[in-house]
Write a protein that binds this DNA or RNA. Structure first.
Lengths: 244, 244
DNA sequence: GACTATTTTCGTACACTGTACCGTACATCC
DNA sequence: GGATGTACGGTACAGTGTACGAAAATAGTC
């Protein structure tokens, strides 16, 4: 990739994510806002994917010179970080009033839908970096929900990571094949059907019986999200019941 | 990214992954092999990351012109796919003789270690694409293990995806911060310590009490993998017990 | 109104990327 | 010894993120 490694200054990244007020007053008036730039980036990424998101294209969409973007955003990595926090704001803030299990389930489904609405999220430089306000609010709220189930600090984070990890991992698998088929203009079913004879030439029922059995049963037609989520919540519930 | 969208021909991809024998005989002798190229790619990706893996660099490492690589590999995407299947071969094939739960646990730990040994795996065009032999063998073996627990075809795949999804998702979170700190030459703890004052300026204990409580308890010092894995297997065990 | 300080705007340039194209060098078959 | 088919690799092209620096526009001060 031609993209250099940016030496992202953490202070500028945080200032952008949390929209720290700059010292306005003198100088030429800005013609854009951070949010305009972020919105344009999101629109492009949703439509064409993160691979086709370039500073030149964002600028073109806004009718502006490429380098003008750099007054609003320190660089591409930070733009994507801001885009990430913005779309995270589309999900509901978890509420413990519903009870811990429904609240966790709702959050997981919201996140699952979010990843499918904005598949580029899964390719973005990714979580566990510096977080913006939307992400932080949801994390705190979710931890509060888990706390209300009667778990201590270590278990709170453990459950959080378990849920976040499961949804993210399965979404990565699910979104990937979805994108691949979408790019070719086929439905997901058509896409795999087209490849089936080719796969069968290598993956035979004799050599891979369990895999063939699963395929024959049509199990690949579902994404498996609901099933895995139920098991995950069951596992958490066992722990909750065992906690004093 | 300057990388064009490759129109990967599925047939060539499969032929590469499964090392379909080409019609040898005539013509000039090849100076390299597919495996040499793949090995060079893996070495570079391990050392510098996937972002710094370029066809030019691989060629340079092998002392060969860039375009010569294209006789062994249809393109970069397919090279990465071949690299992926190769390193997957480093993990043990699951064995149901150990019992379903220990076998699943061992596999999950192997995968976790694999992702940390080859972080670029998580950025590679990703699973659920066309699979190579190593990946297929492990998938079939793992499904066999799950079958031995007494689950039907749909549940077999569900458990497989649950485990694969959880490990992948949590590894993505874990590997990310690990890489970020490694790039700067700091330990992970130093890296976060350096950012702590900055984060505290925005993320206060008053506004985010649950998050602060977790941080104060030192919960962030562990990756949470063991904890989440235990819950996941617990959830699966509940299902196994409820199955006839 | 003139001057100065400060900010935004953006053209140009650079070091990269993946790979299409195509002539050349080589190994085998007839 | 051709003919044929393969491997090799130089060149070229359309992209990328962004450093640099000059020009333009605004606000405050005299």
């Amino acid at each position: 990739m031609a993209e250099k490694i940016e030496r992202r200054e953490p202070a500028r990244t945080m200032a952008l994510l949390w929209r720290a007020p700059g010292d306005a007053g003198r100088g030429r008036k800005p013609g854009l806002t951070i949010d305009t730039v972020v919105a344009a980036g999101i629109e492009l990424a949703d439509r064409d994917g993160l691979a086709d998101l370039s500073m030149r294209r964002v600028a073109e969409k806004l009718g502006v010179g490429t380098m003008s973007l750099y007054t609003y955003v320190p660089g591409k990595a930070d733009l994507v970080a801001a885009m990430r926090d913005h779309v995270v704001g589309e999900t509901a803030v978890p509420d413990k009033a519903a009870g811990w299990r429904p609240a966790l389930e709702t959050y997981a489904r919201d996140l699952w839908a979010l990843y499918h609405r904005h598949p580029w999220l899964l390719l973005a430089p990714c979580a566990h970096e510096l977080q913006g306000p939307n992400e932080t609010v949801r994390m705190d709220a979710l931890l509060t929900v888990i706390e209300s189930a009667g778990l201590d600090a270590h278990h709170m984070l453990g459950v959080f990571l378990l849920l976040e990890g499961y949804v993210r991992g399965l979404a990565t698998l699910s979104v990937d094949s979805q994108l691949a088929s979408a790019r070719s203009g086929l439905t997901e079913i058509e896409w795999w059907a087209e490849r089936e004879p080719l796969i069968n030439a290598y993956v035979t029922a004799e050599k891979f019986p369990a895999l063939s059995k699963v395929a024959a049963a049509g199990a690949f037609d579902t994404d498996g999200f609901d099933f895995g989520l139920a098991r995950t919540l069951d596992g958490i519930e066992l722990l909750v019941q065992a906690s004093p």
